[in-house]
Computed example of a mutant assay.
Amino acid sequence: MKIEKIEVFAVRFPLKVPFVVSYHRYEDMPSVIVKLTSACGHVGYGEAVADEHVTGESLESTISIIHRLLGPQLIGENPMHMERIHDVMDRSIRDVPAAKAALDIACHDLVGKKLGLPVYDLIGGRYHDAFPVTHVLSIGDPDAMAEEAKQQLDAGYTSIKMKVGVDVASDVARVAAVRRAVGPDVPIRVDVNQGWENAGKTLQAMQQLIPYALDWIEQPVRADDFEGMAEVKAKSVVPIMIDEGVRGMPEMRRLTLMQAAHKVNIKLMKCGGIYPAKKLVHIAEMSGIECQIGSMVESSIASSAGFHVAFSSKIVRSVELTGPLRFAQDVGNLQYDLPFIRLNEQPGLGIEVDEAVLEQLATARYEVTG
């Protein structure tokens, strides 16, 4: 089996409401969809959601790299040979993990369809039967966040994740408001997205947050401040999760050597796709660090890919792949069964891509052929 053609689509997914994190406000979600076609006629889909603040990529750079560099390198390659696929990409260009993730995901989807197997059976087999889905609150007024939390619990969610990272005082007020609204028993996780910057501010915030019984606090300090993460972990009674700080192998190795966090949020867009994500999961497991599979607010395509990694990995204890639930329109049909997600047994990613919707949402299209 050989890759014969690669098509690249620039897409902007409409959001039901804007999504606000500490470093940006998203009115819609830019994405790059990749379609691989093999010489025998099988098709696989992949996706890249670039983020200048996390992966150092943009929509435009990702399209150019896939169209002009990585795509031509993969024409004629066998998508089953994932170690070689990644070696070819890594030799062509350093970093650009979201661009590589799009091609990696598409290869897995294509191979799964060729063999008649779901992707999770290609990477270890299904371990989990279901995962609870957490509703994510973007940054807003404390009362508005509290009201949204109550509404989402009524809709079926059983846990809440809060985006914070504006400043310590207002963030504590947000957490307090949500805790009052949902009661003492609903799990609450807090994601700072580096917004508290350093260990000093983070420890100040965590002292004030003790009464609110948080499940964990995610990436409170700057991404490269492993020493700050380690200090916070050593002085905190609340588990600490690292996210932006771990992209690929070098950062995961540093995390395991320093034991700088209790948990790690692995994202396919940060590490380069399904194949490297599984490698990171294995490294974390060897060091006793629990894993979450997260996302960059992706469509059904990349969200499904993340779920296949999660469902096939024992050490993955939580997921955060709710992009399709935020979109007013999606190209795929990933199905949620709130408050859970359960994967089907269909081959590949297990979703159908509506090409009419893809053409409708696409703002540009490019083609790579052999």
Rank of each mutant, 00 (worst) to 15 (best):
A99F: 01
V8L: 12
R68D: 07
P118D: 07
P72C: 08
D191M: 04
E47W: 06
F311T: 10
T158N: 12
G195M: 10
D215C: 06
Q204E: 15
F13H: 12
M29Y: 13
A155T: 10
H42I: 11
G350K: 00
R179N: 05
R222T: 07
D154Q: 14
V246K: 02
S300I: 12
A99L: 01
D28P: 04
F131Q: 03
Q73G: 00
V238I: 14
G306K: 09
W196N: 12
T55W: 13
E352L: 09
G183L: 14
F307Q: 11
N265F: 08
T202V: 15
A213I: 04
P72S: 09
G288T: 06
R342N: 08
S38W: 04
V221G: 02
P97E: 01
Q335R: 15
D330F: 03
E57A: 07
V20Y: 07
P184Q: 14
K5Q: 11
G183P: 02
A177T: 13
G245D: 07
C107W: 07
G140V: 00
G323F: 09
Q208S: 11
L69A: 11
S58E: 13
L321W: 01
S236W: 05
T363R: 06
M29E: 11
K201V: 05
P276E: 09
M89R: 00
I123V: 10
A223R: 14
L122I: 10
D104C: 03
I65H: 00
S295A: 14
D129E: 15
G288M: 15
A155I: 06
P118S: 11
A213N: 15
D109E: 08
R174D: 11
Q207I: 07
D109S: 09
L122E: 01
N198Y: 02
G272D: 03
Y366N: 12
D95N: 15
Q208R: 15
L117T: 03
V34H: 00
L74S: 01
I105G: 08
R365G: 07
Y336A: 08
C107T: 06
Y120R: 13
V136D: 01
S299C: 08
V119N: 06
F19P: 06
R222A: 11
D95M: 06
Q259A: 10
P339D: 12
A328G: 15
L122T: 10
L59Y: 03
R68A: 03
Q346W: 04
M145V: 04
E352H: 10
Y212G: 03
V96P: 00
K113N: 08
V54E: 12
A169K: 15
E148N: 02
A223H: 11
P72G: 09
V17P: 02
P118E: 09
Q329K: 13
V182H: 01
M1Y: 09
Q329D: 15
F311E: 03
D90P: 11
C40K: 15
L115A: 10
R174V: 06
V319G: 02
E60V: 03
V192E: 10
Q152G: 05
W196V: 05
H108K: 12
P220T: 06
G272Q: 13
V11A: 00
I240V: 10
